[in-house]
């Protein structure tokens, strides 16, 4: 298979980037998209040119390092898979392909196709956890969790933190990502004590990262490699609403103070 690639090259965060044209031949259908880029890079290196920089690690769709948009779509043409899982059989001989980094104001380009997604880590830092130390804990079977609840929590927790949802959203909203963590922990009994403080701090952090709000386009769900459901966003909105009404810190104040 012979392809024409237009690949985003950008020296660093401050530099102006541009699309660079490459012709590549000898691509087989079984290759993954990233193996195709490996091949191109090997060619560039042999010619003494600077290789194209892109993040990737596990190459099996679980680490979430892939941050490529192929023909404008985060993670490319596949449904429910990451860039590293896209196989070249999705393309045909003679195709022209445009490869860019995930585009979002919250994800500055580091170099070429590599972006900075530390915004997602800061959202988790703000509240995406349960405050327990290492040490003896209660026997887990003493707190039963019904099968459907455990499964739904797992659906949400399957998020790989790639940020495709943010890149796909016309508003650059981080709501699918944030709601997945809010829902995972909010569904389980262990997450109840901090349920309402968590949702508030995470939503506020998301806003501080410059991410927009959800206006129900559904692009995030469509681009999500783990097929995480939009329904979690509704769940987060509901929890946020409740939190602002019943926030314990305010409830503890005396009426005269309010």
């Amino acid at each position: 298979m012979k392809l024409t690639l237009h690949i985003w090259r950008q020296a660093n965060a401050q530099a102006k980037g541009k699309l660079e044209r490459h012709e590549i031949d000898g691509i087989s259908e079984e290759m993954s998209f990233l193996e195709m880029l490996d091949l191109l890079n090997e060619k560039l290196v042999t010619e003494g040119k600077d290789a194209i920089t892109f993040d990737s690690d596990c190459r099996e769709g679980i680490c979430g390092a892939c941050s490529l948009a192929i023909n404008g779509r985060p993670h490319g043409p596949g449904q429910g898979c990451t860039t590293c899982q896209v196989r070249m059989r999705s393309f045909k001989d003679g195709d022209e392909i445009w490869v860019e980094p995930f585009r979002s104001g919250s994800f500055p380009v580091v170099k070429d196709l590599m972006v900075d997604r530390s915004a997602l880590d800061r959202i988790i830092q703000s509240g995406g956890h349960i405050n327990v130390h290492s040490g003896p804990k209660p026997e887990p079977n003493s707190i039963p969790v019904s099968h459907p609840v455990a499964e739904e929590a797992m659906d949400a927790s399957a998020c790989i933190g790639c940020g495709a949802c943010v890149a796909a959203c016309p508003n650059s909203a981080g709501m699918l990502f944030t709601s997945a963590k809010v829902s995972h922990l909010g569904l389980l009994p262990q997450g109840q004590p901090e349920r309402y403080s968590r949702v508030q701090s995470m939503v506020h952090q998301m806003e501080d990262e410059g991410m927009g709000g959800c206006t129900n386009h559904g692009e995030c769900q469509d681009a999500c490699p783990m097929e995480i459901s939009l329904a979690f966003i509704s769940r987060m909105n509901r929890d946020y609403m409740k939190a602002t009404l019943i926030e314990p810190d305010q409830r503890r104040g005396k009426l005269s103070n309010q």
């Binding site: 003896p136 804990k137 707190i143 039963p144 969790v145 927790s157 389980l188």
Partner: peptide, 22 residues
């Protein structure tokens, strides 16, 4: 056995049977 207790307390969603047990 401590590891399982620790992970469950952190919210790791281990598979559960219908009765709610691990």
């Amino acid at each position: 056995t401590n590891i399982i207790d620790q992970a469950v307390a952190q919210g790791v969603p281990f598979a559960r049977e219908y009765g709610g047990m691990l």
